[in-house]
Write a protein that binds this DNA or RNA. Sequence first.
DNA 1: GCCGTTTTCGGCCCGACTGTTTTCAGTCG
Length: 580
Amino acid sequence: MTPIPNISNSQLAQVFNQVADLLEIKGEIIYKILAYRKAADAFNDLDRNVHDIWQEGKLQEIPGIGKAIAEKVDELLTTGHLSFLEKLTKEVPVSLTEILRVPDIGPKKVALFWKQAGITNLDELASAAKAGKLRSLPGMGEKSEQKILAGLEALARRSGRLPLGKAWLIYQSLSDQLSKIPGVEKVESAGSLRRRRDTVGDLDILVASRQPDIVMDAFVNFPDVVRVVGHGDTKSSVEFSNGVSAQLWAHPPERFGTALQYATGSKEHNVRLRELALKRGLSLSEHSLTRTDGSEILCSTEEEVYAALGLPWIPPELREDRGEVQAALAGELPLLIGMEDIIAELHTHSNWSDGKLTIEEMAGEAIRRGLKILAITDHSTGLGITGGLSVEKIPQQRREIEAVQSKVGNKLLLLQGSEVEIMANGELAFPDEALSQFDLVIASLHISLRQPSEKVTSRLLNAIRNPHVDIIGHPTGRLLPDREGADLDMDAVFQAAAEAGVAMEINAHPSRLDLDDINARRAIALGIPLSINTDAHASSDLDLLHFGLGIARRSWATAEQVINTWPKERLLKWLKARHS
DNA sequence: GCCGTTTTCGGCCCGACTGTTTTCAGTCG
């Protein structure tokens, strides 16, 4: 029997995106290309492994997958090859696709440079532009050539996607500056920042103003702007000295709803809405909804936009074209978990390990934020750098927690927890009799994340199956923006977690956001409880909760599915049942 | 290439901005 190649959903998506890139350069009709890109997105967003769906013979039940693409997936999963792609790469050099990453260069220009100037990669493009050889090509000129040189430089200094937390801080500062411009009535984040994606490409910002020209002029002249990418009447985009790009729209207040809806995206969600609008005899744009007779419906709020299409307002976190429009039409949108639902913080550190505050100080901070339950989960030994709690000190820490508990009374329930290290050999850093002394145990991976998939997965499975473990902390161990998580077999992990009834964490720290939205949605689909925690090491960390909440909302989580919302009695009962 | 409470064929979202052009193509979101 031939082994089935192990191709993940995201690898599959990459293959079809590459097909789309090459077809686009080749000059294939745009709708075919869109179909491939849509299929790639569908694979990326799937809450199950494509493998399983393939084995069930249900590929074509995935929206956007038809006969032709299903056959290609079949070939890929059976043989590990795609003859269609192999044939394509013989016609179109793969190195051309790297040129597509240059701003202002799309498939048409790539094809032009390739066919008329023999350019096949970024180096050749740069040489030709510097030598002034591009300006004479049809449709090109001196300005276009300069723009390409600027684009190449921008590409070189572009710093990938921003982690959500950093994007949020930059937005706050830009928002302050924008609100001081005369005539600006409102400032709102848009794009992937407002949708709370874990990383953000460009910052998208919308302002309400009746004098958009003044706003645009002020914006492109902000300090730290190193490049004005575009400067129009209602839209401008700039690049700052730190490599971050931002895009600004300005629309009058009575059109703010359509404009915000448009700027928030996602693009795919917007396409879906516009299709729906057309079916209702309306054309949707950032300016308004237009009837067939040309008359306009103006919307100052997003609620009005969605209502005009017969829909309830869809929260930004859901707007990824992952079935939210269909759910809204059917009246089946989930009632997403909100900040007000969360009463427990279950993953924090005190000065008993590497936290900055005493247990009493942490308790005070938790009370100040309206929390009802706080678990102190200091690191175990085994994670050398942090000076973890030793087995001998567990009773001593218990006495301190009890002392603080008697001081705060019923304002806050304190739990003695542990963040126990999953060691490189797969054992937990504490023996079972030590773990049994805690009210709550989180098991986490911090070290040897680069082990082979089989090894690191088995470590995590071992932790999940330990009857003392209640939560798996930041399951993949990724660090945004650049450090990938461990190469885990998430199917095996989720299956084990579902069987053991262990909760999986959404770590709210913006450098983690782990689980991510797709994995969290898979967990929910399997009935695995989620736990959103800040992993606070200092008081200000407790304010990071909203980032984790954003990820949970993106995974369609309701309050019921997150143990941090459960009343005290229910949480304690759940813990007790697990430990008995 | 996908899809169907107008369709199994003929459609497939909408507009801003830029640069090259005399009315539009390419790129982007």
